[in-house]
Design a protein around this nucleic acid. Sequence first.
DNA 1: CGGAATAGTTAGCACGACTAATGAGTTACG
DNA 2: CGTAACTCATTAGTCGTGCTAACTATTCCG
Lengths: 129, 129
Amino acid sequence: MSYANDMPTVEAVSRTDAGLAAELRTSVMRLRRRLSVERHPDNQLSIGSMVVPGLLHRNDAQTVGELARAEKVQPPSMTRTVTSPEDGGFVTRRPHETDGRRVVVEITDWGARRCWPTASAGTRGSPCS
Amino acid sequence: MSYANDMPTVEAVSRTDAGLAAELRTSVMRLRRRLSVERHPDNQLSIGSMVVPGLLHRNDAQTVGELARAEKVQPPSMTRTVTSPEDGGFVTRRPHETDGRRVVVEITDWGARRCWPTASAGTRGSPCS
DNA sequence: CGGAATAGTTAGCACGACTAATGAGTTACG
DNA sequence: CGTAACTCATTAGTCGTGCTAACTATTCCG
């Protein structure tokens, strides 16, 4: 009873469009489940919330709309996604300098240290690892 | 304003463990969101429910526990996941021949035709594509 | 000034996952 | 045998993540 016998390969079962689509769906869903669980025990941020510091690491000080477009979600989704790292003190909301409609999200010093520690310090326990 | 300028690469930003983990999370979550939306309009099964006919296509007549282990989810999750394709007539539940605790899930003829049409017929509108 | 457009939020829903607890059936052992 | 321990599936309740619809506040423009 080998792994190969238990686990039909794509060649064996899924040469149709529907079969390949099913393989892809199953694989991606499993990977996402795994990623949402495989995080450091100290980590208080969920997989969705961890995305926000990641986006701000690339470009700090982005509006909610920019974050939503970057992550390809609707604005209300990003509004809620930002709430948890904000409550945790990782990021802050502040009004835009010139446009009163916009809200700028920035990473805090503390959040940056927690999420992106220096290489020498390692990333053990980082909320983003 | 090119794609390359807007989209920092892994090389540019994410050489740390935390950075690579963030890249992976973001990519997988986006792909899953996309897959859950990208299905044929005729398709009445959600992404989670589509997994069940796929598993039964490999091995028909599996118990709820076997499906849960194959998909690496907890049994209660699979119990609920099976409900929707069962209500849609794609699969059936029946008691196990010898073990009264077990429940066997099988794909119906109709479900098999709908999910895995012959190659010549194509898979347009298949609940599994 | 006043209407249209834009940005963000709130509220409510769907879906997929989990844990804890329950019921029903099987197995093992004294 | 008969009961205690175990296994399997389900129910109930919760959380996280996405959506749409509707609302508020602000800005833009004619």
